[in-house]
Design a protein around this nucleic acid. Structure first.
Lengths: 204, 204
DNA sequence: AAATGGTTTAACAAATCCGTCTAACAAAAT
DNA sequence: ATTTTGTTAGACGGATTTGTTAAACCATTT
């Protein structure tokens, strides 16, 4: 009896297929084949395609949520360093999960019933993260150290700059084929640029 | 004999369906029903679902490409004003076509055979647009008016900031439910923020 | 009015895809 | 050794979906 084995295989294959092709594009037969099992197995372990997808999507949604929190959230750095470090770590997370954002955005978009679930996830993050940072930034702004800004706007700036290049990579790659020799170098440049942009946004 | 009529109806319906659900999610029967014709008509005018989709996608791709060009391209304004104006007009275009970027990115992403086509489209834009702007900015930088920057990086900053909120709207909406009373106001704030960010990016 | 052309319809065919069922199989428990 | 429990394989069914075909339709031309 080796249950965990095939279940994990199916999950791994499903993750790949769903991430690459979305719910409609992914075919259960392809998942099964890629997992090296008959497609009946998929129903044995997960009943339906829907439930299997559910499992993958909610995993990925909470991963995506946590990524912002853990990147910007923990360290005891001074506010500006913390922001810089947050962008950097969030960017690193994206490099390790380059097509996660596209997957989330798509599937949430095409399933409005998910909005509520997402709303909850997001709200918790905002509450936990942004209030504290806002106070710190207000304090700095009060001291005339930085420009006063709304953290949510600033965070959206940062997240936009970080995520978009990954979402749109195939579209923008031709533009930067010259400026950078390879994908890795391009993203390294991009990370530096994003930090620069955000720092200048709040610099006095 | 009124050929153009139904052909146009089918195209209109196909556009809606494909934009909303993507190639796999859209069903030819639904397109036909929405166009008010039998689904055989769809094959009569376009042979296959693939060819119909082809038509829609390439229309949308060139629209997307032109949007950047026309927004940033034409007016005889001084460079900084031109940049400001470009962001503003590009943003307005997105407000009128809020789910165009998601559509393009998705379908191009899931069809690597399109990369080449996209590459061509993009390259022409870059050549036509960026070289001139780069020279102007270099000149300003030489005079010490602004920070020296790579236009392509700057443009990617601008496009990222502009497009991302539309792509991710369902995900970020809960965060800004407080800050703005409605969608329209949120995007108005966002447009101003994006201009501010980019101006500060190059300000000396 | 008969013929001609493009257009439309309805029925059909083929493929795909999700899900079920039954029987076989293996390992552990009795 | 037999039963039990959990796992696997293969075949099957039904629904959906894309694509085809042949005949009807209708406006214009002759």
């Amino acid at each position: 009896m080796k249950p965990k084995d095939t279940e994990a295989e199916i999950l791994k294959a499903a993750e790949q297929e769903f991430m690459l092709r979305g719910f409609d594009g992914a075919k259960t037969a392809a998942i099964a084949r890629s997992a090296g099992v008959t497609h009946a197995m998929l129903h044995y372990y997960f009943r339906t395609k829907e439930q299997l997808f559910e499992r993958i999507l909610s995993d990925k949604m909470s991963l995506m949520g946590r990524s912002v929190l853990t990147a910007f959230g923990n360290p005891g750095l001074p506010p500006l360093e913390r922001l810089k470090d947050g962008i950097s770590r969030h960017f690193d997370f994206l490099m390790a999960n380059p097509d996660l954002p596209r997957f989330i955005i798509n599937e949430v978009f095409s399933r409005p019933e998910r909005y509520e679930l997402m709303r909850g996830e997001i709200s918790r993050i905002v509450d936990r993260l942004m209030q504290g940072v806002q106070q710190e930034l207000d304090k700095l702004a009060g001291q005339g150290e930085i420009e006063s800004v709304d953290v949510r706007m600033l965070m959206l700036d940062a997240v936009s700059l970080n995520i978009f290049p990954f979402i749109a990579y195939p579209v923008i790659e031709p533009i930067f084929g010259n400026i950078a020799v390879d994908r890795e170098q391009f993203f390294a440049l991009r990370k530096a640029e994003n930090i620069e942009v955000i720092m200048r946004r709040i610099k006095k």
